[in-house]
């Protein structure tokens, strides 16, 4: 696969926020290479820069300096229409607060990205139903978000994020508003989709349950990568914890 091995690369990523006199460096030189098909968790304390990194990788906010490459394309070089194409076709987004359109039904929410992709109406609806079935909500197609539980809303958001068959799904604390059991279900669903669909999943999280399913865990602290753990290290640690118990 050559250079196509990495689906996302960041180089020297810096993001500063200026508020009045003060400048705050939320990202302070992040270099990260993410392999195709990987399930990667970004862990770190509150305020460490996870969401800022999420926004930079997802093309939702411009970094102050440094670059993000998606499939070897430098995002800074893209014009608005190319960036929109990337957001529509290549990246799927999942948020802590679901961000469903409140006036649309579950199905309409999932079909919306296919409309922006220019997919014919019938195909879009078919795809929407297929995805909602896949996340276990085939019986809730015509419910509005307010008529669904948090876990169900997040499932709709997951279905929506996958509607245009993206190669990357970015999730910012997808289990942050959910209870333990529902959170575990969402994590398992994401893992399953990662295995079956081959989609790369990048998830910012506080949730230690996420560590178990991750191929790699990136720990960030004060806007820098503190360490990166591979699957083997994680297994070892989980093993150790079990021994200690």
């Amino acid at each position: 696969m050559g250079s196509n091995e990495y689906v996302v690369r960041t180089k020297g990523l810096i993001k500063e926020f200026t508020m009045g006199e003060e400048t705050l460096r939320a990202l302070n030189g992040v270099d990260l290479d993410i392999r195709r098909g990987e399930y990667i968790s970004i862990m770190g304390p509150s305020g460490s820069g996870k969401s800022t990194l999420f926004n930079a990788i997802g093309g939702l906010d411009k970094p102050t300096s440094g670059s993000v490459f998606i499939n070897d394309v430098d995002m800074a070089q893209l014009d608005a229409a190319e960036l929109a194409y990337l957001r529509c076709h290549t990246i799927g987004y999942i948020f802590q607060s679901y961000n469903l359109i409140p006036v649309m039904t579950a199905l309409e929410n999932v079909v919306l990205p296919t409309i922006f992709a220019g997919m014919p109406t019938d195909d879009g609806i078919e795809r929407g139903i297929e995805m909602l079935n896949k996340v276990g909500l085939g019986h809730r197609l015509h419910h509005r978000p307010t008529e669904l539980s948090g876990g169900q809303q997040q499932r709709v958001a997951i279905a929506r994020s996958l509607a245009n068959r993206p190669s990357i799904v970015l999730a910012d604390e997808p289990t942050g508003n959910l209870d333990l059991k529902t959170g575990t279900e969402i994590i398992e669903l994401l893992r399953e989709l990662n295995r079956n669909e081959g989609v790369t999943i990048i998830s910012a999280t506080h949730d230690y349950k996420m560590v178990d399913v991750s191929d790699r865990v990136v720990w960030i602290r004060d806007g820098r990568i503190a360490k990166i753990e591979e699957r083997a290290d994680i297994d070892l640690k989980i093993g150790e914890m079990n021994v200690n118990e």
């Binding site: 929109a84 961000n99 929506r160």
Partner: peptide, 8 residues
Amino acid sequence: TMKCLGAL
């Protein structure tokens, strides 16, 4: 949200 889904 719509811009995340690909709206120009």
